[in-house]
Design a protein around this nucleic acid. Structure first.
Length: 858
RNA sequence: GCCCCUGUGGCGGAAUUGGUAGACGCGGCAGACUCAAAAUCUGUUGUUGGUAACAACGUGCUGGUUCGAGUCCGGCCAGGGGCACCA
């Protein structure tokens, strides 16, 4: 029996598609467009299972939409700037550019072997000078529009390496390489004014109907619009006031302290003269800059000795603490603490022996409500609050706000959690920020004629700090304004900037302006974007901002870059550790006959950890290449689609791939060695069909309907199941009709086989193409229209109705579709098992759900 | 810690969105073919009791709404993603 030869077949069709330019997309205003995009990869050197899953999903959609008659754009590129290239340079002495280019070449080869429907002519890498040249122009346009600006902010600073650390490079408060305690350092850095669009970014989420609800929710929470007040607490023994932001001004009479961020100007001022305060602030800064670290750290405070007066009772003085959990970036960097109605404030008050006064009480407990271990967070009636007593929370907020505003002590404010986007990176391998610092003229944009600002090739990674600023000559330039000696900006841009507009650049990847209007107008926005859920907030929000900024600068005329979003789950695998606690790759682990895991090389015992998303750091990665090499891309693709719905995490197991490979061969045999005659291509449709043929035709058309629906809703795993059922039905049909099949049987057989090939086409394109050819076609399946089902064959005239007694299934009835309710009812009540279950009790009620269920209530 | 999501047989999952829980596949078991193995084909496979018909139980735990809950609501538990310099 000839087995399907995946390797030669796949290479053959890949070459054919490429030669005929099947996936080359051009603007064609006569056809409806569809833009499919997967999140472009970071060129780490090898594709991993997450990529295989991501690109398979995009490829299925592309081929399906193409078969539906759309003009489909499906490009691919490389998110090529970033930290790992610099790490490679430091660790192995390879230039980041070479490392990146080599990785791109290797990964492209792997992608080509997957048979993906990309228009490779549009390939781009963000480290291409022609790409970052255009990005620099857009940066200057943003600068001109006031959307880019400089200010001071904190970075993680490694005092030994003299370099800025990414959050992931800070481990337990220490630099990952030097092990030195990380400090925080203030640097003047570039920001994009994303907060300019806070309201719009939030409001427009409602219109993103083809985005997952949870992503919209996460973004909404991230933007974090909250209505509250700025309230002034006058200093008791100095002029001025401390302005706090609160959303709970109703609880103002429960205030027992104020707290300010360690970065608050007041904290900084105190620290200049008070060494203890200085030490406390330094201690706080050791936690790092990440919000997660701050929130999880023990809540501690430092009593500054400064007192402020309560805005409603001037005689009431409250202490001011510096506290490690107050973020300078949020609100005013200062709060008032009301321990009775906030968990964090309560913890803090208990720790420092501060008063806990309940000012909101649950109904009925207004007289004697006290707080124990937990704050009271629900609505209730105000108590101990003078003019607010007796009001509910909402009414108290309104009254307090009016009171404070009338006295000039506060102001209603809308506050956002969203902060401006810091885009400066003190690194080499990124897009240079195209400005020049002149001692006389200040910040001067690089004139357009002098763009691009190219990265120098001759850089030294051996030293510490930013190689660009250490470069002996690169930054020394003449000021474009006055001609005197000046210095280039040596910060490069966050790589999120690169990925915030690449999807638009794909419309005209070689254009000499950033974005080309005609191409953008036709192709954008992206109709379906597909990528990991881990990008649900940052990348997607930055891209949404970037398009708004680009629109304001006249580059585009839309604001939302992605009309549809599919967030795929992670690909997971078991983790392995040796006796020393070191992570092991799956291929380093062997299983002995008893199923115990051992180190393949040494035989030493191995601990199996739980399954987690594949990551290099835990080494629980499976290389797709050996699988593609052995079984072919179609097998890997089908496995990715068949086992889990796209949005769910997928557990990679070696078992199963074998099964898919067997199924590939089974499908191939359906056409290569058919079990019954197959009519010739284009044979006339017979006038009548026999019993087995009608049954098969029903399955065929139901499968077409099901798979089509699944394709529209991304339920690819269900599409796979439906195709399985059709191929099972074909085998049963062949066994039933055998070699004596009639002409009508042969025609039906062909109809079913063609349906299988066409339906499988987007998922296993090489096998489908080969089947199509084997069935006698001379055109390409990749250029053939999607099949349509015959509605008459999809609806059964007999339905199975479940009969329950008190909700418990007692019988099923085969009845004619749409039988009158009375007849269904009497048929159900006449059934022996039903009678037995009723056991002579009086029937109180019979619920009949048409064509589905009867429930007898006794 | 905060925000979001997920939880169904030995395993991945399905269930027309409130109407027969376990489709389809993997794995297992039994059989056919074979000198043998692979491949292929057939049957079987939620758990418990029963030779069987059948019965009881069963969708993380717990409480509720309903004629009826995997699906809706409340409370918990476990796992995953994100937390602004990883991409």
């Amino acid at each position: 029996m000839a087995r399907y030869n995946a390797k030669t077949t796949e290479a053959k069709w890949q070459a054919t598609w490429a030669e005929r330019g099947v996936f080359a997309a051009e603007v064609d205003t006569a056809k409806p467009k569809y833009y499919v995009l997967e999140m472009f990869p970071y060129p780490s050197g090898r594709i991993h299972m997450g990529h295989v899953r991501n690109y398979t999903l995009g490829d299925v959609l592309t081929r399906y939409k193409k078969a539906q008659g759309f003009n489909v754009l499906h490009p691919m590129g490389w998110d090529a700037f970033g930290l790992p290239a610099e790490n490679a340079a430091i660790e192995r002495g390879i230039h980041p550019a070479k490392w990146t280019r080599d990785n791109i070449a290797a990964m492209k080869k792997e992608l080509l072997a997957m048979g993906l429907s990309y228009d490779w002519r549009r390939e781009l890498a963000t480290c291409d000078v022609e790409y970052y040249h255009q990005q620099q122009r857009m940066f200057l346009a943003f600068l001109d529009a006031g959307l880019a600006y400089r200010r001071e902010s904190l970075v993680n600073w490694d005092p030994v390496e003299h370099s800025v650390l990414a959050n992931e490079q800070v481990i337990d408060g220490r630099g990952w390489r030097s092990g030195a305690l990380v400090e925080q350092k203030k640097l003047t850095q570039w920001f994009f004014r994303i907060t300019e669009f806070s309201d719009d970014l939030l409001a427009a989420l409602d219109g993103l109907e083809r985005w997952p609800e949870r992503v919209r929710l996460m973004q909404s929470n991230w933007i974090g619009r909250s209505e509250g007040m700025k309230v002034d607490f006058a200093f008791a023994d100095r002029p001025g006031a401390l302005t706090v932001f609160t959303t709970r001004h109703d609880t103002l009479f429960g205030a027992s302290f104020c707290a300010i961020s360690p970065q608050h100007p007041l904290a900084q001022e105190i620290a200049r003269t008070n060494p203890k305060a200085r030490a406390f602030i330094d201690e706080c800064q050791r936690i790092g800059t990440s919000e997660a670290a701050l929130e999880q750290a023990e809540k501690i405070g430092f009593d500054t000795g400064i007192k402020v007066r309560h805005p409603c009772r001037a005689s009431w003085e409250l202490p001011v603490y510096i506290a490690n959990f107050i973020l300078m970036e949020y609100g005013t960097g200062a709060i008032f603490g009301c321990p009775a109605h906030d968990q964090r404030d309560l913890d803090f008050a208990r720790k420092y022996g501060l008063a806990v006064t309940a000012v909101v009480a649950p109904p009925g407990q207004e007289a004697d409500f006290t707080i124990g271990d937990a704050p009271f967070l629900d609505d209730g009636k105000l108590v101990n609050s003078e003019f607010l007593d007796g009001l509910d929370v909402a009414a108290a907020k309104t009254k307090m706000a009016a009171h404070l505003e009338a006295k000039g002590l506060g102001q209603r404010t809308v506050n956002y959690r969203l902060r401006d986007w810091g885009v400066s990176r003190q690194r080499y391998w990124g897009c240079p920020i195209p400005v020049i610092h002149c001692p006389a003229c200040g910040v001067v944009p690089v004139p357009d004629r002098d763009l691009p600002v190219r990265l120098p090739d001759d850089v030294d990674f051996a030293g510490s700090g930013n190689p660009l600023s250490r470069h002996p000559t690169w930054k020394r330039v003449a000021c474009p304004g006055c001609g005197k000696p000046a210095e280039r900006e040596t910060d490069t841009m966050d790589t999120f900037v690169d990925s915030s507009w690449y999807f638009a650049r794909f419309a005209s990847p070689r254009a000499t302006q950033p974005l080309e209007a005609d191409a953008i107008g036709y192709w954008l926005p992206v109709d379906q974007y597909i990528g990991g859920i881990e990008h649900a907030i940052l990348h997607l929000l930055y891209s949404r901002f970037y398009m708004r900024a680009a629109k304001r600068c006249g580059y585009v005329d839309f604001t939302e870059p992605f009309s549809g979003l599919l967030t795929q789950g992670m690909v997971c695998h078991e983790t392995y550790k040796d006796a020393n606690g070191k992570w092991l790759y799956p291929e380093e682990v062997a299983f002995d006959p008893a199923g115990t895991a051992v180190h393949a090389a040494s035989g030493a015992p191995v601990t199996i950890g739980r399954s987690e998303s594949m990551s290099k750091s835990k080494k629980n990665v499976v290389d797709p290449n050996p699988i593609i090499d052995k079984y072919g891309a179609d097998t890997a693709r089908w496995f990715m689609l068949s086992d889990s719905p796209p949005e769910r995490d997928l557990e990679w197991t070696d078992a199963g791939v074998q099964g898919v490979w067997r199924y590939v061969n089974r499908l191939w045999r359906l056409v290569d060695e058919p079990g019954a005659p197959v009519a010739t291509v284009g044979a006339a449709r017979p006038a009548a069909f026999g019993e087995p043929a009608t049954a098969l035709r029903r399955v065929t058309h139901k499968t077409i309907a099901t798979v089509t629906k699944c394709m529209e809703s991304f339920h690819y795993n269900r599409a796979v199941a439906a195709v399985h059922e059709l191929s099972n039905a074909i085998q049963e049909f062949c066994a039933a009709v055998g070699p004596q099949a009639t002409a009508a049987d042969a025609w039906t057989h062909r109809e079913a086989l063609e349906a299988v090939a066409l339906l499988v086409g987007p998922m296993m394109p090489h096998l489908a193409e080969e089947m199509w050819q084997q069935l006698g076609h001379r055109n390409l399946l990749a250029q053939t229209a999607w099949p349509k089902h015959d509605p008459a064959l999809v609806i059964d005239d007999v339905v199975t109705i479940a009969v329950q007694v008190m909700g418990k299934l007692r019988a099923t009835l085969e009845l004619a579709r749409d039988l009158p309710e009375a007849e269904v009812r009497s048929a159900a009540l006449a059934n022996g098992s039903v009678v037995k279950a009723i056991a002579g009790k009086a029937v109180r009620k019979v619920i009949v759900v048409p064509n589905r269920v009867v429930n007898v209530v006794v």
